[in-house]
Design a binder for these strands. Structure first.
Lengths: 166, 166
DNA sequence: CCGGAATACTTCGTACACGAAACTTTCGCC
DNA sequence: GGCGAAAGTTTCGTGTACGAAGTATTCCGG
């Protein structure tokens, strides 16, 4: 049995470590991107497009967990550099597909780095047991956070409903 | 024994989940901050100052894993709002200490939210075993990433040395 | 089939976020 | 004691990052 103090210390350490892993991984992606004249997010988008093929701007946003307005800017700059083109869908003229140009594709293939590279590299050195444990516990965490968020959003929505009705 | 495919899938899931936990936690901090007219980083700084007392700008930067130039801006805006004051150290006149004003302190104490709040909340619901497993594996990851980064930085430094010498 | 809700994207304003360069002050060494 | 390197902070330029408001298009209930 762990004491409350131990538990608190452990939580701090876990948060510390996850923040470290995340920020460090992003920093190194950025550094790799720099070497070919790109920014971190731009490299991420480039790699995604090479992997997924043409995708709409919204699904791109969803994939990299950013708002549409953010991605609009990123694509603007990549289009300016001739790495991608925008192509309006004929089926639904609200939708914009992002397509790699030849230049963009070549650049994408010339870089060996994956998004969150260092992170993945190190993860692959874990034993099967460690990987399984990590996945098991993180899975629980993700599930519980999602549940809490849903709950929280529901309360907020209810607040707004009440406010509107008053 | 896990197959390579399983291993790759697991790595993807782990990365996915960590990115989710991190971004979601930041999003919710931002949302909490919004309710009292602050931004996410500003709330984080406010809480840190209330906990740590006066600290120099550099140590603040280090604590929140940001560059000094970033923190300068954050403090500028908080100072403009009358939440903190800058105080130049008398011992070392290069150093600037950041101090909470009364207004800042009151605001800090009026908010129950900790940085990465949701994350901590959910972590505290884990069993001792799960916490231990998580900490154990994350600890390994952190250690290995640090080692890789050190190695990498050493190579870069060597590159620069060679370039300078040529 | 038409008018309003919903969807996809862009625009705008503000706040990070970072690296490079500038500035001030301190330190180390001869 | 003085001077060059180093440390602490700020300034500047560029690129995210987000929410709110705006525009164009599609969907849907009557």
């Amino acid at each position: 049995m762990l004491s409350d103090d131990d538990q608190t210390t452990h939580i701090d350490e876990i948060v510390e470590t996850i923040v470290y892993l995340y920020t460090e991984s992003r920093r190194l992606t950025k550094q790799a991107a720099r070497e070919i004249g790109l920014t971190g997010p731009q490299l991420t988008v480039l790699k995604l497009l090479d992997t997924l093929g043409d995708v709409s701007l919204s699904s791109l946003s969803e994939r990299i967990r950013a708002q549409n307005s953010t991605v609009t800017g990123i694509i603007d700059r990549m289009e300016r550099e001739g790495l991608v083109v925008r192509e309006r869908s004929t089926a639904d003229r609200r939708v914009v597909y992002i397509r790699l140009t030849e230049k963009g594709r070549e650049l994408a293939r010339s870089v060996p780095v994956e998004p969150m590279e260092i992170f993945r590299t190190v993860l692959s050195t874990l034993s099967s047991d460690d990987t399984r444990d990590l996945l098991r516990v993180l899975g629980k965490l993700g599930k519980r956070v999602r549940a809490l968020v849903r709950e929280h959003e529901a309360v907020s929505a209810d607040d707004r409903r009440k406010a509107a009705g008053s």
